[in-house]
């Protein structure tokens, strides 16, 4: 680690102010950022900690019936407090990493980072969530822009994520044996007006919606409906743990199983 200053704001406004300092970077749970700092792969001069900002923490339902999660809310808290409102999302949170990771890591950190194998991006995109920052609201469809790429601008902070609650949903993940991140995972959400399917872990372009499956499931919400669909392996990740073809194959299996778990 290189030396850095730490700011501990207690409001979003102060955090935004602190972010104006030269080479400032926000830090939430530190579960991604601290290993990066330890490996000396990042050298911010100021770390702006978001974990002391109460207005960025918590889980509640808004008037529009959306589940609203503060950007600095830990996975463990979402697992516990969202269960009654949106069980599929709570279950996603409950299966991230291990207890230590869940007690530190936050939803804001996860979707700001947009790791191509992370869980929350699938939950947010699959639910059609809205990402609220200190500046604006961004639809999930516009927010996730590729591997580690988001619509966030320099210094912009994710303050809240609002999830429309589907009539039913399920997150099915296949673990990468070493990291236990998803090798491939599918988030399937069934709404009154259609089905959304988001896939993580598989693509070189990060989380994405699987349009063919959405259409097929929209017409017939049954595991069989996706059985015949093939995914093109061209843009899929190929590494030690699975070839592009294998990942493409798992997309179908995970989606089918998610649907089966719902119906």
């Amino acid at each position: 680690m290189y030396n850095f200053d730490v700011e501990m704001p207690s409001t979003v406004a102060d955090a935004v102010k602190a972010m104006a300092r030269d080479e400032a970077q926000p830090m939430s749970g530190g579960q991604t950022l601290i290993p990066t700092l330890k490996a000396r792969l990042a050298a911010p001069s100021v770390l702006v900690s978001l974990t002391g900002i109460d207005e960025m923490k918590g889980v509640c339902m808004d008037d529009a019936g959306r589940l609203c999660i503060g950007g600095a809310t830990t996975h463990a808290r979402v697992a516990a407090e969202a269960a009654a409102h949106y069980p599929a999302l709570a279950s996603l949170a409950a299966r991230i990493g291990d207890p230590a990771v869940r007690n530190r890591g936050t939803i804001g950190g996860s979707i700001a980072n947009n790791d191509p194998s992370a869980c929350y991006p699938a939950g947010a995109l699959g639910s059609g969530a809205t990402i609220t920052t200190n500046k604006r609201e961004i639809a999930a469809d516009d927010y996730f822009q590729g591997m580690f790429e988001t619509a966030l601008e320099e210094g912009e902070i994710v303050t809240e994520v609002k999830f429309p609650v589907p009539t039913a949903a399920h997150y099915e993940k296949f673990l990468q044996p070493a990291s236990r991140f998803p090798l491939v995972a599918a988030y399937v959400a069934k709404f009154g007006d259609g089905v959304r399917v988001a896939i993580t872990g598989a693509s070189n372009n990060g989380v994405f919606r699987w349009g063919e499956a959405e259409a097929a499931l929209g017409a017939n919400f049954a595991a069989d409906a996706v059985a015949g669909l093939a995914v093109d392996a061209t843009d899929m990740i190929s590494d030690l743990h699975g070839t592009a073809e294998y990942r493409a194959h798992l997309i179908g299996v995970m989606t089918k199983r998610a649907v089966a778990a719902i119906s």
């Binding site: 743990h241 070839t243 073809e245 294998y246």
Partner: peptide
């Protein structure tokens, strides 16, 4: 004997 190898 990883899942990927078995599947392939």
């Amino acid at each position: 004997v990883s899942p990927s190898r078995v599947w392939a």
